[in-house]
Nucleic acid binder design. Structure first.
Lengths: 156, 156
DNA sequence: TTTCTTGCAAACCTTTTGCACACCT
DNA sequence: AGGTGTGCAAAAGGTTTGCAAGAAA
């Protein structure tokens, strides 16, 4: 894990002149670059979670030169530092969304494949009543609704 | 899609002697082989959905010679013919389970990674109350509970 | 005997990694 | 200036496919 997010850069450490063998002031993930800004902006501005290719495509509009390797590296960075959440739906694609959205669930359109955020959580009020085997401890849950989004349902 | 499952072989069609350009009596997926029996047995005998590697490992105990390609081909066959369901949890691994288990959900242990079937469906009775955007049509849902299974919770 | 199935290996595709150069600080 | 970050291309990992041999029916 990294000490700081490049989105929330820390103040430089006080320079006390001490000599250190391992320079801890130098860490991966603290440098603000146009590529990283483009990637985080793409994720933040999306109405739903995005797959890698979608992130690449949208972020490239902001930085013409952007390699897929950078997208993967940055997503790993953002995920490990807790700024972004990865989620995997039944189509097997991993999608990414901002981590500060709060607890919510998703709607997956079987026609267009898009994923939409659903506000709120209907599970919370029944979570206690869900029967699990003796000794099992529930820590979290994921709910995905599948069906047709409004646009696809209309064009049926 | 295939006309028949090799698990439920159809009777041969009556031989009326008619000449057909495309021989429809000959179809992929209708031949009973030790590999296919081993794969379906592994899936049926499991208490929860299995990943490809687990299926290969268990099925190999029944047929010493079994290639990974056959596992993939058979899983595709079984999935497309509706005998097996594929599911993808948050770890990104695709797992397979018998399709005749009825509607149910899963518990994913974050410690050992195993997936357990949960009987029943707590969503059914609240499905109508789940708020979705105007025009969206719910057709299905998936629920996964995450936490610790009894064994892992006990060895904490 | 015919045609489907299989195993092997090559092909594919997606994700990761090594390296030299670019760029932040 | 120093060291992180990037792009490119190669490597790695997992899944699919072509093909000749093997096995159902």
């Amino acid at each position: 894990m990294h000490g700081q997010s490049f989105l929330n850069p820390r103040q430089g450490p006080p320079d006390d002149g001490a000599l250190v063998l391992v320079d801890e002031s130098s860490q991966v993930g603290e440098r603000r670059t146009s590529q990283r800004e483009a990637i985080t902006a793409a994720i933040r501005q999306s109405k739903g979670p995005l797959a890698v290719e979608e992130i690449l495509h949208r972020a490239r509009k902001m930085t013409r030169t952007l390699g897929i390797a950078t997208v993967y590296r940055t997503l790993k960075l953002l995920t490990e530092s807790g700024q972004v959440h990865a989620l995997t739906l039944s189509d097997g694609q991993i999608r990414y969304e901002a981590a500060d959205l709060g607890h919510h669930h998703h709607f997956h359109c079987r026609a267009c494949g898009r994923v939409f955020d659903l506000p709120g959580c209907p599970i919370k009020r029944i979570e206690q009543d869900i029967p699990v085997p003796e000794g099992f401890q529930i820590e979290d849950h994921e709910l995905t609704l599948n069906g047709l989004c409004a646009a696809c349902a209309a064009s049926d």
